Amino acid sequence: MIRKILKLLAILILLVVIYFGYIFGRQAWDFFKLKKYKENLEFTASENVKLLKDTIYLEFLDERRTLHIFLPPGYENSDQKYPVIYMLDGESLFDDLYMQGPEWQLDERIESVMAEGGPGAIVIGIENGDRRSEEYKPFAKTDSNEEVYGSEFSRFLVHDLKPWIDMRFKTKRSPRHTIIGGASLGGLMAYYILMTYPETFGKAIVMSPSFWVSDEVFRLHYDKDLSDKKIFISIGTEENDLVGLAKRTFKVLEAAGMTSDNLRLEKQRGFSHNHFTWRDAFKKAYPWIIE
């Protein structure tokens, strides 16, 4: 009997060692891949990307922010109006050198879709600040008294930034042409903003969302008409607890009446929580969300 118990214990210990070895191995590989990438950084933004340094002012934080703006090829010589994608963590979208790491290649993806005859879009990337964690949380972490500014940031985006953009650029202004997107805490915020301001935003790109912050996330859709909304959720299969939370959100939205026509869960096999994952996610999201 004792021999059987010891044998089972040895097997259990071996399984634990294998599991944690795999986890640490993945983390080491991600670190090595990022380190090698940073050794060869170059300027990668397309000629259609503009940088508006310290253009906007966030009164609730007393901070100025830089905008990273992509205008579709041919924009300057056309009267055409375009959908607008508002993206959080704007410094990550277009340029390896500015990002100091793997940018998400939004400009390359949109240009490639347009080159094949597909639709274009304007991208407004909003650079984050030193207090990103507080700024990108609409509610405090469960059992925490931390100070957060997600609701203030959302109001700023809707009532200040969007009107400012609509006055200066050739935009389609309806909710069905106004998209919000982000990754990690930015993914949480994208989902929150869509649900909180459905009269302004009609679509969301929700990448690797940090839904661990609060169970309030899973009640945001209550009393909302989601029939005209479109939500793309992506998650890497190696993102641990975030995988289950993304699946839970998908099931909640399915139960609320959303279908494959306006709801998609993209499982990125072998991807973990990093910028390569979000580059891949946007590549898959754009043609679906923009159609």
Score class of each variant (00 low, 15 high):
12 L>P: 00
15 L>W: 10
18 I>L: 15
19 Y>A: 14
35 K>V: 06
36 K>S: 14
36 K>P: 04
38 K>W: 04
54 D>S: 11
56 I>V: 08
59 E>A: 15
62 D>K: 15
69 I>C: 04
70 F>C: 03
74 G>P: 01
75 Y>S: 02
77 N>Q: 14
89 D>E: 05
93 L>M: 09
100 Q>R: 14
103 E>K: 10
103 E>R: 10
115 A>G: 05
122 I>R: 04
126 I>K: 05
130 D>T: 13
131 R>D: 10
135 E>G: 01
140 A>M: 02
144 S>N: 07
150 G>E: 00
151 S>R: 15
152 E>C: 09
155 R>V: 09
155 R>M: 09
171 T>K: 10
174 S>V: 13
182 G>V: 02
188 L>N: 00
188 L>F: 06
190 A>Q: 01
191 Y>D: 00
192 Y>G: 04
194 L>T: 01
202 G>N: 03
214 S>L: 06
219 R>Q: 11
223 D>V: 04
228 D>V: 07
232 F>L: 03
235 I>N: 03
241 D>A: 13
246 A>I: 00
246 A>S: 09
258 M>R: 03
260 S>F: 07
261 D>S: 12
263 L>Q: 03
263 L>Y: 06
263 L>M: 09
265 L>M: 06
273 H>V: 02
274 N>I: 01
275 H>L: 08
278 W>Q: 00
286 Y>K: 07
287 P>L: 08
